[in-house]
């Protein structure tokens, strides 16, 4: 894995990377989704993927999180038990097992990630039950605990998320994802559809919880303010390709690629 680890020396962790992506590509017919994507993600690290809409960042996230299938490349993942796997070549059963246990996905629209017609408690409990938890009291205890952690009143445990506000739904989705202590979490514009007033508080919450759980995280956002707050490291995408990557502060304060410079200058002080 030395070759993989060589491209960056972030000094964050001496361990080998949790995830190493090489040569990832996706085309839609003749249209390019993304290509030649390569990066490493270390344990506990938050990687931001930024770029304007159409830059390929969501395609990349969808390929990584198995929502769509990439055409080429490797997604090398180091499992909890130490085994190294290429996610793309895993059988469907192993893929799904990873997705409901060690990995987590937070959708931009919480309605895509929740069961709106079962209670908040069951939404959080589902991943636990899928992993074999069979003690009702224990599952419920975890659920109320996590509701409190995402600042939802535990009295709402048996209410349907259908009637929750957008911000509450998003926090519930985060609790539902983090309850199994995933090692790798994908987030697609996690504050996308929310009021600015709600966004800041949610970002703090996400940062705190991800840190607490010790998960590595890949966050797609078009919002550089979000990227600055959450990400340790940034990857800038344009027209399906990665044009620049580096530590967040370096990329935002001293952008090298002309496109990154344009992107940074086009937003007000962040």
């Amino acid at each position: 894995m030395n070759v993989l680890a060589a491209s960056f020396a972030p000094g964050l962790d001496p361990d080998p990377p949790l995830l190493a992506v090489r040569g990832l590509a996706k085309h839609y017919g003749t249209t390019l989704g993304c290509r030649d994507v390569a990066f490493d993600l270390w344990p506990g690290e938050v990687l931001g993927i930024v770029g304007e809409s159409g830059s390929g960042k969501t395609t990349l996230l969808n390929c990584l999180s198995a929502q769509i299938e990439a055409d080429a490349g490797e997604i090398l993942y180091r499992c909890r038990d130490g085994e190294e796997v290429d996610f793309r070549t895993l059988p469907e059963a192993r893929k799904r097992a990873l997705l409901r246990g060690e990995w987590g996905l937070v959708h931009q629209n919480p309605r895509d990630g929740l069961r709106l017609r079962v209670s908040a408690g069951a939404n959080i409990g589902e991943r636990l039950m899928a992993q074999g938890a069979r003690h009702y009291g224990g599952i419920r205890g975890e659920a109320t605990g996590w509701l409190t952690r995402v600042e939802i009143d535990a009295a709402r445990t048996d209410d349907l998320p259908l009637h929750f506000s957008g911000g509450m739904q998003q926090r519930l989705q985060i609790a539902r994802t983090l309850v199994t202590q995933p090692r790798l979490v994908f987030m697609d514009e996690p504050t996308g559809g929310l009021d600015v007033s709600v966004q800041a508080r949610l970002l703090d919450l996400i940062r705190g919880l991800v840190d607490e759980v010790g998960a590595s995280c890949i966050v797609v956002t078009h919002d550089l303010a979000v990227a600055r707050l959450l990400a340790h490291r940034l990857m800038v995408m344009k027209a399906g390709c990665v044009v620049e990557q580096g530590l967040t502060d370096q990329v935002l304060d001293d952008p090298h690629h002309p496109y990154t410079q344009l992107l940074v200058s086009s937003v007000l002080q962040v």
Partner: peptide, 13 residues
């Protein structure tokens, strides 16, 4: 794929 978590969701509810 033995993805049966959802059965217990129903019982939980």
């Amino acid at each position: 794929l033995t993805e049966y978590g959802v059965m217990h969701v129903r019982l939980y509810e």
